[in-house]
């Protein structure tokens, strides 16, 4: 039986896949969820998912597993028009989805976002021809 964190990992990947489907973009998972030692082809995007378990969150008599999730999206900009399209379409879908509390709430295994927290998006960064954004959220998982 998968742990709540494994379930969350799979759910987040499904969420990103839904963004790719909705936006029509090619977003595939990077060969590693850590670091930047992988290649991105022009005009395409890669994503990474990092799930960091943290201390359980107690509510009444129940302890909810808690995790910090980081979704990074990296896009190889092949032209200014391509960058505009990526920001206008793909990142709009990603922002609408991953900053929306209900997106996380409906994900399998996720009980709720951690109270008094909101999903956040980082500033964009550019390295060579690749622009990157990260989304972070602190989520509570269904108790085992």
């Amino acid at each position: 039986m998968p742990t709540p964190f494994e379930t969350l990992y799979g759910s987040v990947k499904t969420m990103v896949a839904a963004i790719a489907t909705a936006s029509g973009a090619t977003i595939t998972q990077a060969t590693s969820n850590y670091g930047d030692d992988f290649r991105i082809t022009p005009g395409t995007a890669r994503y990474q998912v990092q799930v960091k378990p943290s201390e359980d969150w107690p509510r009444a008599t129940v302890s909810y597993p808690r995790a910090s999730v980081v979704v990074s999206i990296h896009h190889y900009v092949s032209s200014l028009a391509d960058e505009e399209s990526f920001l206008h379409v793909t990142m709009s879908y990603a922002t609408d989805s991953l900053l929306e509390k209900s997106t996380w709430q409906v994900a399998a295994g996720v009980f709720d976002l951690e109270p008094d927290t909101e999903p956040e998006i980082s500033d964009g960064e550019r390295e060579g021809n690749v622009i990157s954004f990260s989304f972070t959220a602190s989520v509570l998982l269904d108790p085992v």
Binding site: D37, I40, Y76, G128, N129
Partner: peptide
Amino acid sequence: RLAFKQQR
């Protein structure tokens, strides 16, 4: 050498 196996 740059990130994502790019080179400048």
